[in-house]
Write a protein that binds this DNA or RNA. Structure first.
Lengths: 342, 342
DNA sequence: TTGTAGGCGTTATCAA
DNA sequence: TTGATAACGCCTACAA
């Protein structure tokens, strides 16, 4: 590959002039610039960004660490980041952690190794505090959705508690009293918050949370299916199932159908996330819209601020949610015992 | 940040020795190595990969260019690449092109700019042939799924034609004669091939393709929904709908339900891709499993070979498919006019 | 407006 | 086994 020296020679100028021409803004006489452009064209020259980065001490890469990518939630989150990153001249390096602490830490180290300028984390595992934080400027890290309440980093999330309470409220207004829940992984902040929201909603409606049938899932399609089976097997009466994710709600729909139960006639079902597919489930899902892509965008915005001024004080952004009522919920049957048996 | 010189000083050796200790294999006396390790630990040193890359002329980054990422197909493809890439010591840079030629080309240039060592493309737009190909060693590029038949690059895909023909065959065996199709975007190789497969299957069964109701979609949930509406509105008789993607099949399921038609009693529906969610649709989808993740792995394998020996002759890998029969297909009704009217 | 030259942090070659 | 030193390709004072 041709380098800046080749261009300089061919154009009959010094490499400094070429460098200036390359970085646009500098002062280069139009005629000179033309000669340079021609040389670049002729040799099909591309600046070596490794060298440039070494010199300028930056890579223009942002790492986004996610536990996995075969999950619509992650996809849209990353998309939100991509949008802003490209505009700002940054590239997105996608890192799949499978919630492995070692792996995540290795990505933190990439910043120290100048492979990346910043790290956005959407994961239950948390980036260790690199030691240099105390001495040098802090490592640019933004946390999304999952983080300890006492973190001192910039962070963004939506209010899972209130969002889930809003769903419960919707069910209560429809006359439901016996509401079952399928939770997310409660060892994770997101799962726990959504469960808290469920309990909060129940309490606000004056319903007894202790009596509510609860099954523990992990947000996945499979978990929705299995947990519904479990709920049915237990034989507790319920007229609605409140799922902590759309994927679980879709799994629940599948299992209820197998049990010969009609949604929403026999049982109402609710989701959480408002995935695209949820508008096309049978029946279309009542859920709560959390701005997933918007979360990604907000995270990237925080990152850009951090990159601009690494000393900046950490901030927290909380995004709004919105109830989306579709056809998987309906008024509770008066008998209230529709789902008492399999 | 500490650099190699700091370590050398603290350990009382030369930077050359530190460098050797860092690259493991070299010959360094254990005692020396220990001193170096201590210094590294003490200063929390991380090698600057930009400098290392500059010197070694490589970045250890692989770019994966996809049109979008909010699509289960892409997600699993990328996951397949990730798995192998990490093992081989490469990082995956995710590039979202939105099928924009300019954008894709800018990623090709990243290779020339040493920002990445190779490019894997899963997109309808094709990487331009950088001129240096003719003179220097060829740019390491691997094409997946979408590529012109006459490409000279390494490439991987599955046989969409035969796979779709297999689905038609399945329907024919169930006694379906009036089979409608919802196609993918036929200006794309993948969409066109799947349509060809449909026609091939029909012809093999001695059915008249010209009579088959065909609606044109774009693989999306929405397209499945709208195309089904269109099919119903036209009033042609059909007992089965053959969709070019699982997402469209799910959209079709939703629209058929609205029309009061039962699947599979009134109409059979088939998909293509075997997405995870398709096992949980109502009813679970009969589809064809194409190894999406396997495609990513195969692409990465080709890339690794290319990286090892850039002069290597391009190869083509074609992956096998598998029919997955679930509950969205059933024997055709004798009357054969189930879906004649809305 | 242009040129000279030092340095960014590594790796690799050659001697010792 | 270790050390000195020259690249790698670019940017940016500083000088002209």
């Amino acid at each position: 590959m041709a380098n800046i020296k080749d261009i300089a020679e061919l154009a009959g100028v010094s490499i400094a002039t070429v460098s200036r021409a390359l970085s646009q803004s500098a002062s280069v006489r139009p005629a000179t610039r033309r000669k340079i452009d021609e040389a670049i064209e002729k040799l099909n020259y591309r600046p070596n960004m490794l060298a440039s980065g070494l010199r300028r001490q930056r890579s223009n890469n942002i790492i986004v660490a996610v536990p996995n990518i075969s999950n619509p939630f992650t996809s849209r989150f990353v998309q939100g980041i991509e949008n802003l990153a490209r505009e700002a001249g940054y590239r997105v390096l996608l890192a799949i952690t499978e919630s492995d602490q070692m792996l995540l830490d290795s990505y933190v180290k990439m910043i120290a190794g100048k492979q990346a300028d910043g790290l956005i984390v959407l994961d239950t595992v948390q980036p260790c505090s690199p030691r240099e934080d105390s001495e040098d400027t802090p490592t640019p890290i933004v946390l999304a959705c999952e983080y300890p309440p006492d973190t001192t980093r910039s962070r963004v999330r939506h209010d899972n508690v209130e969002a889930m309470a809003a769903i419960v409220d919707h069910l209560v207004r429809l006359g439901h009293q016996k509401i079952a829940a399928i939770t997310g992984p409660i060892e994770q902040r997101m799962g726990l918050d959504r469960l808290s929201g469920f309990k909060l909603g129940m309490r606000r409606a004056g319903l007894d949370v202790a009596q509510a049938p609860i099954a523990y899932g992990d947000f996945s399609l499979d978990a929705g299916y299995r947990s519904t089976a479990e709920l049915l097997a237990r034989g507790d009466a319920f007229t609605a199932i409140c799922c902590a994710s759309d994927e679980m709600a879709i799994g629940a729909l599948a299992r209820l159908r197998e049990a010969g139960l009609k949604v929403p006639d026999d049982v109402s079902v609710t989701g959480f996330d408002n995935l695209r597919v949820s508008a096309f489930s049978i029946p279309p899902l009542t859920t709560v819209d959390v701005p997933i892509q918007g979360t990604g965008e907000a995270a990237m915005r925080l990152m850009l601020d951090l990159l601009r001024d690494p000393e900046e004080a950490p901030r927290e952004v909380i995004l709004p949610h919105k109830l989306v009522v579709r056809e998987s919920t309906a008024p509770a049957k008066k008998t209230g015992r529709a789902a008492a048996s399999k």
